[in-house]
């Protein structure tokens, strides 16, 4: 999933203060799963904005709506009638959400209510970590099912570097050296020698380095 973190509420209050009718829009996708942008969080943020308005003697109307997904135009369309009653939107989906809303409704001001962090998963309830950097050509099978691009601080494909220290990365003792984990796993699988086999350099043309990406699936396009 895409993991996000709520923006400090004071920041949201500040960026929206010129507006008196706000619609907080959530998303039932990734951000619901990471407890930051679903219907529950929409209600909490909307309530906090109302409380803040009242306290500061400002009239603010704050509406609440949660879409199935904000990254699909057919769901974003659902806002058409609702938006007539509002001046601005606070989207608490990942960064895709506010952009899709702004694109579909160019006359409406749209603010991001969360800071999108990474593609990852839940280690346990309340703890998430990064797993994929979207390089466009997955190679985790070479590395015991572990992604060194997303999980090595230097994205090394031929680690570990000299900073690996007792299983920890040189940037912090709180960060595992993923190459320590990769080597251990390859040893456990009896595949250590595969790590020294020659592989041609990875092409980064499919990653962000090749410019903004777009994908067309001819069989799906109508």
């Amino acid at each position: 999933m895409i993991v996000a973190r709520q923006k400090p509420i004071e920041e949201i209050v500040e960026m929206t203060q010129a507006f008196h009718k706000l619609l907080v829009v959530g998303c039932k996708g990734c951000v619901t799963v990471c407890n930051v942008g679903g219907a529950k969080e929409v209600a909490i943020l909307a309530s906090a904005l109302r409380i803040s308005g009242k306290r500061n003697g400002r009239e603010v109307v704050v509406g609440e709506h949660t879409l199935e997904r904000q990254c699909d135009p057919e769901y974003v369309d659902e806002l058409k009638d609702i938006l007539e009653d509002y001046e601005a939107v606070v989207s608490i989906a990942c960064g895709v959400g506010p952009q899709f809303i702004a694109e579909r409704y160019p006359a409406v001001r749209v603010f991001p209510g969360v800071n999108t962090q990474f593609m990852g998963g839940a280690e346990e309830h309340g703890i998430w970590s990064e797993r994929c950097a979207g390089c466009g050509t997955c190679v985790v099978h070479y590395f015991g099912g572990v992604c060194p691009i997303a999980r090595c601080s230097k994205s090394l494909l031929n680690g570990p570097c000299g900073g690996s220290n007792n299983g920890k990365c040189e940037i912090s003792n709180d960060v595992d050296c993923i190459w320590d984990i990769i080597v251990t796993r390859m040893m456990e699988q009896g595949r250590l020698k595969e790590l020294i086999e020659f592989k041609p350099p990875k092409s980064w043309a499919t990653a962000r380095d090749g410019g903004p990406r777009r994908m067309i699936r001819e069989e799906l396009v109508e």
Binding site: P8, I9, E10, I44, A48, I51, S52, R55, N56
Partner: peptide
């Protein structure tokens, strides 16, 4: 925390 963040 929420209250504090909105100056309450």
């Amino acid at each position: 925390k929420i209250l504090e963040s909105i100056g309450i």
